[in-house]
Design a protein around this nucleic acid. Structure first.
Lengths: 329, 329
DNA sequence: GACCGTGATGTAACCGGTTACAGAAACCGG
DNA sequence: CCGGTTTCTGTAACCGGTTACATCACGGTC
């Protein structure tokens, strides 16, 4: 059994209140007493229990972050950005992946009970669950998800970059475009699709852009889309994918089939994950770390400053043109 | 203020002990009473406080995982593998990156005070710190780090795959080899370098393998190594890198300089991160997720079963030959 | 020498649960 | 209808800290 504050008090011949004051570095303890307590604490290798302290102070000094499914590089980067700032603020970080689990909302609620605040990435929990957490006073920041009620949010700009991307493709001679993604499960993807469609329709293109819905935003799904298109001998001028992993999967399958990219078909992704650079994939760069870091700062404000008026951050993105959509790169 | 067990007791007209029994689903509560308590709990939207519960039970139902620096894809994967299993076991997961911080050991100790057990990746904390945690009774599992005392460990096999890799390179005609990495800060890298050197020396090669030490195992360092070699006009037949990120950085710079890979120089990495596939990088695949998952299971055994004899797991690896070291791929 | 103010320390209530043990209620057979 | 079980519920101590308030010792002042 680890030593408690009472053991130290007995060892030093003082009361537990004095030990507490010394450990918390409060004022009003005589130097002689302080040294005696410190000596006793060192002797017993005493460290104050977080549990006792947290219960008395009614705070956790810990925040949580919830992310979906078996996150690829995108979420990992966001979480790392978050962790960096949280650690600076001397807060512990709890993570929770809702991967597949049907009891995700329970798990989130459970985590809320261990934290002073929560960051929620994407559509991991229902709007109703977010509302109910907020109603119970849980401090919340949403990332990659549109604001709900008066809950803070951090998002990357999607519309403008969707327009730039589409205009780039049009200027490269693209006349038919197929968007790959799942606008329902990912708010980001929904905005991207809307932005691409609008920009495409605004041009004098002959065909409306198509939408191919996939279940998961991963390489496998991208490969499946490529297979289907190859089997039907139905390739558009460009595949615009909702994220890089879809695009990479698609690209790999097209290359295996000997299709000329970008000659026959162009492919673009979104996020600019590390692999995109090496695959020569045109994409839209998101500040992934910065998304997490910003969320951590907003959450801290909510907890420490008791800020009440909501804030919504929109971080800039950047079109990155590579060889998968351009002959000059 | 959130409702407490006393509020529910008053609302239901019972004692707090009864409420506790109902919430814990203990035996021996009459159905009529149980329903009354559940109704009161629902009415007040009561959820038991983790803090109070944990203090009374003297357990956290949470584990921590410590990883170095601002981890690239490798650590992210290990953490995800860990999280998946921990969540199944209904344990919360705390993460801590020791990135640069000089007070890393304090932070780890702090985290130990919040958890029932800890997984430590790589050389994030000193051997002495590990020993001292173990001595205080903290349940520990080391990953990607050789065993210390009687502390559990999980590692990927390095020697055999280092030999396979080296033999592959020799069979491709490599006569001079330069290893890139930091054997001091990473035990894995140290083993890899030792394995490569041994295998290379055992052949009838004319030159001993060289070692180039870098500060960080990232793309930037790899690029710097390439730059230095190019500037000195001193390219070996093969760069064998301690991880994929070094290799990718190196590869990118060589490609930019118009050097023929694998014709003029071959490049290999380690880990098989996602980007390695798209860069055509020869590497050694590690079961990254499985490393984390195994660590989670070992830790659970330590905590639940009070197992005392240490276990050391060695997970298999696999040589993956791609175009960066082979003309036939 | 009595009085008072100040600063150091101790006492005890409290944070929100769990649980050993005591006590009450319900049930049983005779 | 009574005593003995059995089953349910309540009381109170405890987990390990924090902190408001009481107390006490001490030094200074008149």
């Amino acid at each position: 059994m680890l030593p408690t504050i009472r053991d130290v008090a007995k060892e030093a011949g003082v009361s537990i209140a004095t030990v507490s004051r010394v450990m918390r570095e409060s004022e009003g303890v005589r130097d002689a007493t302080r040294l005696r307590v410190l000596a006793a604490a060192a002797e017993l290798e005493y460290t104050p229990s977080h549990l006792g302290r947290q219960l008395a102070e009614r705070r956790h000094a810990a925040n949580g972050i919830v992310f979906p499914d078996l996150s690829g590089p995108y979420y990992a980067e966001v979480v790392l950005g978050y962790e960096g700032v949280a650690a600076e603020l001397r807060r512990s970080v709890l993570i929770l992946s809702t991967h597949g689990r049907s009891d995700a909302e329970d798990a989130v609620r459970e985590m809320a009970g261990r934290c002073d605040g929560l960051v929620i990435l994407g559509r991991t929990v229902s709007d109703a669950a977010v509302q109910s957490l907020a109603a119970r006073g849980t401090k919340l920041v949403l990332v990659a998800r549109p604001p709900i009620g008066t809950v803070d949010s951090v998002n990357a700009e999607n519309h403008a970059s969707a327009r730039s991307l589409t205009e780039h493709l049009l200027s490269e001679g693209v006349r038919s475009l197929r968007f790959v993604g799942d606008p329902v499960s990912s708010p980001d993807v929904a905005e991207r699709w809307a932005g691409v469609r609008d920009a495409f329709l605004r041009s004098e293109s002959d065909r409306a852009p198509e939408l191919v819905t996939v279940d998961e935003l991963d390489e496998e799904s991208g490969a499946a889309v490529a297979d289907a298109a190859l089997a039907a001998d139905d390739l558009p001028d460009a595949f615009v994918c909702g994220n890089d992993e879809l695009a990479l999967g698609l690209l790999g399958r097209l290359a295996a089939a000997g299709v000329d990219v970008p000659g026959t078909v162009m492919v673009t992704g979104w996020d600019d994950v590390m692999a995109a650079r090496y695959a020569g994939l045109t994409t839209v760069r998101q500040p992934m770390r910065e998304l997490g870091a910003t969320a951590a700062r907003l959450l801290e404000e909510l907890i420490v400053d008791e800020r009440t008026e909501p804030r919504h951050e929109l971080l800039p993105t950047e079109l990155v043109i590579r060889s998968s959509s351009s002959t000059s790169h």
